[in-house]
């Protein structure tokens, strides 16, 4: 009897392990923090790209509405791809705040002069530390922030596409 209980419990454990491993095969190995709604502390300062003015980040963000932040760099190839979608956002009167990530200021300006400037404001993140406050892993990333709570409500890792643009537009319409 005791033997049988042992056998059955080991068997049960074995089957459980099998099921878990079986499911584990399907779990994606790519990690993303897209679902993490972290809170952002806006009390730090940054330099603007075009006029070298130093500002506190709070001043840039809409305290009552939704803000869109895009992290980009002129050296980043996918950023070039997503640029036209950022222009779409601009044409829809959606303000996008740019964070210029580890870039040479001249290259960044040339990039915008050539392709157009979709941003309402651009701040410079020379050493990449400001992007970490936004939970960025690399470039490009687009982050939607709720100004009332300062929480990230949506995050897009990698270049934007048409669906993302629609999603962003809907998000903004919903809350306003």
């Amino acid at each position: 009897m005791k033997k049988n209980i042992k056998f059955v419990s080991i068997l049960f454990f074995l089957i459980l392990t099998f099921v878990v491993m079986f499911k584990g095969l399907d779990v994606s190995k790519d990690y993303s923090n897209e679902k993490l709604n972290s809170k952002i502390d806006f009390s730090f300062t940054a330099k603007k790209l075009f006029n070298d003015e130093i500002i506190i980040l709070e001043d840039l963000f809409d305290q009552n509405g939704i803000s869109v932040v895009n992290i980009w760099a002129s050296w980043c190839v996918p950023c070039r791809e997503e640029h036209k979608f950022l222009m779409n956002l601009k044409n829809m009167n959606i303000q996008v705040i740019g964070i210029n990530y580890k870039d040479a200021s001249k290259n960044a300006k040339d990039f915008l002069n050539l392709l157009g400037n979709p941003y309402s404001d651009i701040i410079v993140d020379k050493d990449g530390t400001k992007s970490i406050e936004f939970g960025a892993i690399g470039v490009p990333e687009t982050i939607i922030i709720n100004g009332k709570t300062n929480n990230i409500i949506k995050k897009f890792i990698g270049p934007l596409n048409t669906e993302n643009v629609i999603e962003i537009k809907n998000l903004i319409n919903e809350t306003s």
Partner: peptide
Amino acid sequence: LSFLFILILMAL
């Protein structure tokens, strides 16, 4: 995975 579990089951 399946093969491994068949072997362990057999051994048990």
